[in-house]
């Protein structure tokens, strides 16, 4: 069976690829294509965040009783990343390649240190603590993520 860690880590990597596409197109100043790529990336990342916030984190919190713990911190980091995504969109609107590059670099480091914590610590904790529920959670998460990627 696929673990929560495997499924969600795989989705991180596929979001990374969409990020890289948007970054490359913006550096080439291909604004229409960059806008499309950024929209795709934003939508994938939002789906990932929502899958965590609405499915994974509540299950983890219910199973462990930790509501102010790691999941709260991860939610806070999602807020930061959403704010940076908005700045990326407005840099594209202004066709400002330098601004986009700077915000993109900031988002990438922010996102990867966030992913590292999830992949190395939180997801393995979820796999361990959710026990028998894991299979159902993996099913629900893959359903949500697959809907996004099919769209």
């Amino acid at each position: 069976m696929t673990s929560i860690a495997e499924l969600m880590t795989h989705d991180h990597r596929s979001c990374d690829h969409e990020f890289a596409a948007a970054e490359t197109l913006a550096a080439r100043k291909d604004w229409p294509a960059a806008t499309k790529a950024l929209n795709r990336f934003t939508s994938s990342l939002e789906t990932h965040f929502q899958a965590e916030e609405q499915e994974l984190f509540p299950r983890f919190e219910a199973a462990t009783g930790m509501t102010q713990g790691p999941t709260q911190v991860m939610r806070g980091e999602h807020v930061e990343m959403r704010a940076t995504l908005e700045r990326l969109a407005s840099a594209l609107e202004n066709q400002d390649a330098d601004e986009f590059a700077g915000e993109a670099e900031t988002l990438l480091i922010m996102m990867q240190q966030h992913n590292m914590k999830e992949e190395n610590i939180l997801y393995p904790m979820c796999d361990t603590r959710l026990g028998a529920q894991s299979e159902a959670v993996v099913g629900n998460l893959s359903h949500r993520l697959a809907r996004e990627h099919a769209a």
């Binding site: 860690a5 495997e6 190395n120 393995p124």
Partner: peptide, 11 residues
């Protein structure tokens, strides 16, 4: 630190 069960060999 919590025991690491992740796939990463970094820790």
């Amino acid at each position: 630190a919590a025991p690491n069960h992740g796939a990463s060999r970094t820790p």
